[in-house]
């Protein structure tokens, strides 16, 4: 099953070299879910990313079909919370929609 992954703006850097226009094609076994496909890239699977399937808001456990396209972009300008004293950056709670 062939599907496409499109990463927008700063997420493009996470794509393998040589990908064109932010898009990479993958050959995946039938039944692969959105989550399984997207974890191949270093994309935070929480509220700091927006991940859509064919442009639609879906559960990340949705199985993929031939020809599907997953698109992801960062919502990072709003995704992080920082409290004084925290050394590392904490991310907002996982997106309930995902």
């Amino acid at each position: 099953m062939r599907i496409q992954i499109k990463l927008i703006a700063n997420f493009r850097e996470l794509l393998p070299p040589g990908s064109k226009n932010g898009i990479v094609e993958l050959d995946l076994p039938n039944g692969t879910t959105v989550r399984e496909a997207i974890t191949r890239f270093d994309i935070p699977l929480d509220g700091s990313s927006v991940i859509v399937l064919n442009g639609l808001t879906v559960d990340l456990n949705t199985p993929l079909n031939e020809g599907d396209r997953i698109t992801a972009f960062s919502a990072i300008e709003g995704g992080s919370t920082y409290r004084q004293g925290d050394d590392d950056v904490r991310l907002a709670p996982a997106n309930p929609a995902s």
Partner: peptide, 29 residues
């Protein structure tokens, strides 16, 4: 400081300005 942390992680607004948005809205149709 909170903004700075995000910018360090890669803020689209800083890198591309609002011009990164056409790809988003085009994806959503």
């Amino acid at each position: 400081k909170n903004v700075g942390i995000d910018v360090k992680k890669g803020s689209n607004l800083r890198i591309y300005g609002t011009a990164y948005v056409p790809q988003v809205t085009n994806t959503l149709g």
